[in-house]
Simulated assay, not measured.
Amino acid sequence: MGESDWSEFREGGAAGTDAATDVDVDVAIVGGGPAGCSAGVFTARYGLETTIFDRGPSSLRRCASLENYLGFPCGIDVETFLELAQDHAERAGCRLREDHVESVVALEGGEDTGFRLELQDGEPVTARFVVAATKYDGEYVRGLDDETAMFVTEADGDDERFDRDYPDDDGTTPVDGLYVAGPLAGCGDQAIVAAGHGATVARTLIRELREEAGLWGKYAGRYDWRRRMQNRREEWADPDRWVEVFEERAPEDRDPATVRRLAETYADEYDGTYLEEAVATRRAERGQRRLAAALEDEIVLDAVDDDAILERAAALAEDGSSGG
């Protein structure tokens, strides 16, 4: 998965997917808004084959602009934001499908077998994990849990809605493999909050996979970040150092051979988070160019002209003050 592969520690072959489960994708995300795209970025970057289904009413498109999303000091129009969000998900490795998910049913064959998504237009898709990331309607998951109420009756009428208290805060549910992210999980309607919750849910899913692979505690958590090579401590560049740490801290039920393999795989993953300076610079430039591509040419040119005028005025002011 990602820079390293934990599949050897699972009962199967493909990274992130149980070999006993013949499914089309690892993760199916229903909803292509902030929560769904954010979750997809994390699962895809981890190496899980992820498909995002996005067709249906979007409350975000009712907004004139987003003015409280961090990183856009003057706000950003919704269409540009969604374009960037979905492009980000695709570049991370997600597949976006414009199809409506009518229902999600559990596959037969016992526990941990996954789900089948019935689509309005296309053929059904099977997935090991499902993340429900729509806002208004969770009807497509009805019937997955016969023991715990997933729907509640509205206080002011007979209509039912998905119970936002059904999932835990981290998006997990009583149904193994089913997660809920964003407003449907009761996190609130603000786009930045929904995106943050989507990331939280994805990291929960990844943590559970890593625990299944044998990792524990902080080693089961996955921090998706990149650091500069110049900041790497040489002590942690040595796989044997990780072996020592894992042998000291491993739970008693882990056999020594497994602990060593876990340590070596973790060391590879850790080492892969560091970037050479030239690579970090190229990635920063790539990010800026992508943001520029989302802007209208006239706006970019006007901004450049404004900057030039301001710089010239500042230079003249400095010359005047220095001349007495």
Rank of each mutant, 00 (worst) to 15 (best):
L310T: 12
E247I: 03
A294K: 07
E244W: 06
R260H: 12
D253P: 01
A267N: 04
S321G: 00
L295E: 15
A293D: 12
E285F: 03
A267T: 05
D255Y: 01
A294Y: 13
Y270G: 02
T273G: 00
Y274P: 05
E264K: 09
Y270L: 02
L310C: 06
T258C: 03
D302G: 15
R261K: 14
A263G: 06
A313R: 15
G323E: 11
T281K: 04
E244L: 10
Y274C: 04
D307I: 05
E248N: 06
E311C: 01
Y266G: 04
R260A: 11
E264F: 02
R289H: 08
A303M: 12
L316H: 10
D268F: 05
L310S: 14
A257Q: 13
L275A: 08
V259E: 05
D297A: 11
L301K: 12
A278M: 01
L316V: 06
D302V: 08
D307T: 07
A313H: 14
I309G: 07
A267Y: 06
Y266Q: 12
E285W: 00
E276S: 09
E264T: 08
S322G: 14
E248A: 09
P251Q: 08
A292C: 00
R282Q: 09
V304P: 00
D268C: 10
T265C: 13
